[in-house]
């Protein structure tokens, strides 16, 4: 792709736009070196193979014995993969981790997944990294720690908890009052009380035009605080880190 002229790049972009999802997938597979490895058309040191996945040694390892575990099917990121396959990949990763501990006398292992370029994903084919670790090996997958205030933690919790509960199919333990706040952050004509029984009618305050991002469709909000937590508040937190 790097050798193409600007005109060729434009032509390719146009072609990609008009492709169906199946055609796009086939195109990605043809470009993907890991799909070639799966098909046996490209060389790699395979340490594991079964019907659904293969494990190969990384040629640019974090440590000797660094294994890449790939589904044979081409998936770019984890959310595209069916649960059953993820489960199988997880079980295989655990077995490979055990194998590295024993075969290489490693002191520990990291299991590392990068979804998306910003997370460090380098290839377009989803993979799980299993990295053997030894003391003072300076591999550098250290997770930093930054202190947040309780208020900031609560703000984040309010924002992410409904999505997490929904995604897991879990019930939120607290079933607080869901007084729908139609008005934005600033004072409304009738301020909503903190806790009310659910039967209370939703306040009929006029909706004001707001420049902020639209809220997600969560009928229940954990309103432990009076302020409404918006994406901008979270973005400020993230930008400040």
């Amino acid at each position: 792709m790097a050798d193409m002229s600007p005109e060729q790049v434009e032509e390719l972009k146009e072609k990609l736009k008009n492709m169906s999802p199946e055609e796009l997938r086939e195109f990605q597979k043809k470009q993907c070196i890991f799909c070639h490895i799966v098909a046996g058309r490209a060389q790699a040191k395979k340490v594991y193979e079964d019907e659904h996945c293969i494990g190969i040694l990384d040629i640019n390892p974090a440590n000797p014995g660094h294994v890449l575990l790939l589904p044979k099917e081409h998936y770019a990121i984890m959310p595209q993969i069916p649960d059953k396959e993820i489960m199988h990949l997880g079980i295989t990763a655990k077995k490979l981790s055990h194998a590295l501990l024993r075969a290489l006398h490693a002191d520990g292992t990291n299991i590392f997944i990068a979804n998306g370029v910003v997370a460090g994903q380098k290839a377009q084919h989803f993979m799980i990294h299993i990295i053997p670790r030894k003391e003072h090996d300076e591999v550098g997958i250290d997770i930093p720690e930054k202190l947040l205030s309780k208020q900031q933690l609560q703000q984040v919790k309010q924002h992410i908890l409904p999505s997490i509960a929904k995604s897991l199919g879990a019930r939120l333990q607290e079933q607080p009052v869901a007084v729908e706040q139609v008005s934005p952050k600033e004072q409304s004509a009738v301020p909503a009380p903190r806790h009310e029984p659910r039967e209370v009618v939703i306040e009929d305050t006029p909706r004001k035009a707001q420049p902020k991002a639209p809220k997600k469709e969560h009928p229940k909000k954990d309103q432990t605080k009076d302020e409404d937590v918006t994406l901008d508040d979270i973005a400020d937190l993230l930008g400040g880190s």
């Binding site: 490693a106 520990g108 979804n115 460090g120 003391e135 090996d137 992410i160 997600k216």
Partner: peptide, 22 residues
């Protein structure tokens, strides 16, 4: 869920298995 709620552009899933792994 983090992609959706925080408009994240990516995610990392990390397991540190053993002291040497962090």
């Amino acid at each position: 869920a983090l992609f959706e709620s925080l408009q994240a552009q990516g995610t990392n899933i990390i397991i540190q298995n053993g002291i040497s792994a962090g």
